[in-house]
Write a protein that binds this DNA or RNA. Sequence first.
DNA 1: TATTGTGAACCTCTTCACAGCT
DNA 2: AGCTGTGAAGAGGTTCACAATA
Lengths: 208, 208
Amino acid sequence: MVRLPVYRRILSDLLAEDRRTVHSEQLAELAQVNAAKVRKDLSLLGSFGTRGTGYDVGFLLTQIDRALGAEDDWPVVIVGIGNLGTALVNSEGFSTRGFRILALFDADPAVVGREVGGLTVRSMDTLGETPGLGDSAIGVVATPAGAAQQVTDALVAVGVRAILNFAPRVLTVPPQVLLRHVDLGTELQVLSFFQLRRRAGERSPAAG
Amino acid sequence: MVRLPVYRRILSDLLAEDRRTVHSEQLAELAQVNAAKVRKDLSLLGSFGTRGTGYDVGFLLTQIDRALGAEDDWPVVIVGIGNLGTALVNSEGFSTRGFRILALFDADPAVVGREVGGLTVRSMDTLGETPGLGDSAIGVVATPAGAAQQVTDALVAVGVRAILNFAPRVLTVPPQVLLRHVDLGTELQVLSFFQLRRRAGERSPAAG
DNA sequence: TATTGTGAACCTCTTCACAGCT
DNA sequence: AGCTGTGAAGAGGTTCACAATA
């Protein structure tokens, strides 16, 4: 389920605040969804709640991690170590929860050799020599739009079967490759679209 | 519709390649969706296709822009000018299509005063003095997790009614504020989740 | 002929509502 | 009494399939 990572984030925050238990209504409010949905989602993992009390935060977290494969080992390679790539390297979520950054690549000779987050940035043409880069690896594209497709092809060529694209360019991949696109500008557009619709609703409540 | 920005991105790329027309099947493949869905989505905007031919790329782009409010003016303020914030400032999608970066803020005195993308980073306590910061403004939170809620409260206090959160922390906002969360680590988890499920399906095809 | 636009069927996700457990 | 887990109803989104049309 696509909402599990959201619950995970919430539970993790709750745990940091020493909250031991939580019930579906509270989770629902924090996740901006309906309480029944939370219960249904969580019941998919098994019956981990206690009637009358709620869910044990720590235990639920463990169960979600299991479901998300966070106990597996997912090697990650990041291509394009500009501002965005650097932000990703240093982002907590990229080196925990089963993910392990294997190598960083960049085409720019000025960037190659630089140390970022404890790893040395390597030249793109050494991609094929990366040890541990099997078909379970996830490739992250954080290059400018112009280089994105070429980089993607290179990743696919060395056997990467899952790609997370942050470049503002539509990519094409063979059918066996899983592709997910996060366009930062798109997110902004989605937000303004909802805001627009909401305002329209305010002006003409009958339409709601 | 939440897919319009995706079509927009594709059309924009096609236009850059001098493609003048496109039909629903092609759009569908690039957007990784079904052709009927594309047609239904687009027909919502009006009847802009030509039977037997397809859609005019440039014209369709204009129509999507109109629907997305890209002809409106959306002032954007970004708080947290680290690697991620800097990437956002420089990202094409944040200064085009109706968006206009109004001001940049950071709490770190070492960052305040620095020039990023043609704008001078300002101190957080000057937030309230930003001219043009009405209730149509969008606030972007790109701070570390620890500062995110506090920054959000400050944005809400000065009248911002739409917030895009990139910090890995669940935020709470009053009901009248629109909140959207992009957690970069979450995206990675969603990808690995699908990959996990796909592999499970390969091992036991009966389950699919 | 090629492709759109769309009613209708279908399906999946969401929400309700409550029995069942603690 | 409080809250989960879930069948059933409902809503919304997706896909089919084809008439309409360039």
